[in-house]
């Protein structure tokens, strides 16, 4: 029974403030988990240190100075913490524990329950990491973002877009949980493949040209590296085109999700009796 899916739009929109408040409370109750924010930042920091060694190794064609590397990886770590989505893992464990059945009975569509929980925890992340990033930019002379109101606005917009795209992608992959017990891992594979063109393994600017061309067209970059590139003033390709492609992928997954949902949820009833 998923009548939540067919309830009037106004219902779940009105539920959002309450869902967000609940998510904020959960995040603040389990404060220990906030530490994971910092372990997530470990990988980009390691890459940063290696790049600094590469750049210091003598005359190379890298073309990036220390400041740009530091700025890129600091921003990438923060954006990643703000936009990466754990929905497919949460869904995986909810399916196993039976919690998903409870969620299906609530009058708010399951997608929005997960999305709101994710958004709530990211608001806490933003409140903590936003000031940290600003403080670092002020305190460390090497950290430099071209500060213009338009750039800043575009970077914030791109970050929110990245969050939405992550949530939609992760939720769509989570639906595979109706067929397999590995949906979390499948999403991780998808994300891992994308890491070569998302700006996570290395800034796109330093990747071979053919990978850059692919990256502009694929969804991954718009979930990780795009906001960082904008903030640094070094977007690969045209920024406006980038926003258009991001919206395109958003639309693709927004269309895909309900399609898969309808097939999957029927199967779930069959399994759950």
């Amino acid at each position: 029974m998923s009548f939540g899916q067919f309830s009037p739009v106004a219902d779940w929109v009105r539920a959002y403030p309450q869902l967000l408040r609940a998510a904020l409370q959960v995040t603040l109750t389990y404060r220990g988990r906030l530490l994971f924010m910092f372990t997530g930042a470990l990988f980009p920091m390691l890459l940063l240190f290696v790049w600094l060694t590469v750049a210091a190794g003598g005359p190379t064609q890298v073309g990036w100075d220390t400041g740009r590397f530091v700025s890129y990886y600091l921003a990438a770590a923060v954006v990643h913490d703000l936009t990466s989505s754990d929905i497919s893992w949460a869904w995986d464990s909810d399916l196993r524990s039976g919690e998903l059945s409870t969620k299906l009975l609530r009058p708010v569509p399951v997608f929005h329950q997960y999305a709101a929980a994710e958004a709530g925890s990211r608001i806490v992340t933003a409140i903590i990491l936003g000031p940290v990033l600003i403080a670092l930019a002020v305190a460390l002379p090497v950290v430099a973002f071209p500060a213009g109101a338009a750039t800043l606005l575009a970077a914030v917009a791109a970050t929110m877009l990245a969050f939405l795209l992550s949530v939609l992608m992760s939720s769509t992959f989570a639906l595979m949980g109706f067929w397999t017990t590995q949906s979390g891992n499948v999403y991780l594979l998808w994300w891992g493949l994308g890491a070569f063109v998302s700006g996570w393994i290395a800034p796109l600017d330093l990747m071979p040209a053919w990978l850059q061309r692919a990256a502009v067209l694929l969804p991954f970059r718009y979930a990780v590296g795009f906001p960082v590139e904008i903030a640094l003033g070094i977007p690969t390709g045209n920024t406006l085109t980038g926003f258009a492609i991001a919206f395109f992928w958003l639309a693709v997954f927004a269309a895909l999700y309900p399609l898969v949902w309808r097939r999957g949820v029927r199967r779930f009833q069959a399994v759950g009796g």
Binding site: W51, G57, G58, G192, I201, A202, L206, M207, P208
Partner: peptide, 22 residues
């Protein structure tokens, strides 16, 4: 297997700019 190959390919990027790092 996937993550091992992933890491092996990932570090290749560093060597686009120099044959030897440190």
């Amino acid at each position: 297997v996937f993550w091992t190959v992933w890491a092996a390919l990932g570090v290749r990027v560093f060597f686009r700019f120099s044959d030897s790092i440190a």
